[in-house]
Computed example of a mutant assay.
Amino acid sequence: MSPALDRRTRWVAGSAVALALLFAGAATVASARGDGAQAAPRTPSSASADAGFARDMAVHHQQAVEMSFIVRDGTRDEDVRRLAYDIANTQANQRGMLLGWLDLWELPKTAPDGQGPMSWMPGTHGGHDMRGMEGMDHDGALMPGMATRTELGRLREARGKRAEILFLQLMTDHHKAGVDMARGCARQCTVPAEKRLAQGMVDAQRSELGLMADMLAARGAAPRP
């Protein structure tokens, strides 16, 4: 992401990190024992679904924030600009929470050697086989649903209705994969606060998928097959 976009989002995510530390501190402490003493804090391992989801969704969200800022500069349509603002604000805050949890758990923000993207989700992701992705050239798309470098370049160059349609199509793909990832965490993660966040992502992004389908139809377009 460009330095300008990074500066525009850093302040949003920063406050969310502090909030995440408060939530995760409570979420990772085991319940009190019968004698009234607190059990030792239990934190996820680096190979857990909790850590994998936090790492991968932070990357996924960062691109959604980037695309949202790009389209806000490429169109004057207030509906698209409002949607882009909502996505950027929501996902920057959620990204801050995910990174804050990794800080609290003292886990790396990048996958350890041998753990590629989505390795915490067994089998397939959104109909895409994730096995064997490591080392392959996906034109910058690290996970299913992410836009490629070429697609991001086209979005930066587009203006007006063309920018609106491309953004809505790219963000639809992005949300579909994001929903699948969040469902995976809702099933597999063990930290209650993270499971609740993941389910909230599922609900919110499914709602936005319906809205984007309507917005594409209003522009004589449709989601990409």
Rank of each mutant, 00 (worst) to 15 (best):
L102G: 03
P108H: 00
A16R: 05
T9W: 05
D103H: 05
R219D: 06
H138K: 09
D6W: 07
A32K: 08
R196T: 09
W101L: 11
D86Q: 11
I87G: 07
M67D: 06
R8F: 07
R159L: 11
P108M: 01
L170V: 14
L102K: 02
M97W: 06
A182N: 08
W101Y: 09
T124R: 04
M146A: 12
A51W: 00
M130K: 05
P225L: 03
Q205A: 08
S48H: 04
M121S: 02
G135T: 11
L104H: 15
P108R: 00
G145K: 08
V80L: 03
D56S: 14
N93H: 09
E106F: 05
G153H: 04
M121D: 00
P3L: 12
R95M: 08
V12A: 13
W105M: 02
C189W: 04
G36N: 07
R187T: 11
G74I: 01
M118E: 01
E151V: 11
A204Y: 03
A13M: 15
P122I: 00
T150D: 14
M215N: 09
T75R: 09
C185K: 06
G123P: 02
T110G: 08
L99T: 12
M133H: 02
C189Q: 02
Q91V: 09
A54L: 15
R196H: 03
G123W: 01
G160N: 05
R8E: 10
V65A: 15
H174Q: 13
M133K: 12
R224P: 00
Q188Y: 09
C189Y: 02
M146N: 11
L168Q: 10
V202G: 01
L83N: 13
E151T: 06
N89T: 15
W101N: 05
G96H: 04
A213S: 13
E208M: 09
V71M: 14
H174E: 13
R55H: 10
R219V: 10
A13E: 15
Q62W: 03
A13R: 11
G140S: 07
L5Y: 15
D173L: 08
G220T: 05
M215A: 06
M136P: 01
M57Q: 15
Q62Y: 00
A218P: 07
M133S: 08
V65G: 14
T43E: 02
Y85E: 14
T110W: 07
H128W: 05
D56Y: 13
E78N: 07
P41I: 09
E66A: 15
D103C: 00
L102A: 01
A198M: 12
P112F: 01
H174C: 12
G126V: 03
R159W: 05
W11E: 06
A193R: 04
R8H: 10
A158S: 12
G132S: 10
D35W: 06
Y85H: 10
A111G: 00
F23P: 01
G126A: 05
P112L: 04
P144W: 02
L22T: 09
Q205H: 04
I165K: 13
V12F: 14
F69H: 14
G14S: 12
F53G: 01
A58I: 15
H125L: 15
R42P: 00
E194N: 12
T75E: 10
A40V: 14
S119V: 03
A217Y: 06
P192C: 07
A32C: 05
M136V: 07
E164K: 12
I70Y: 07
A177G: 06
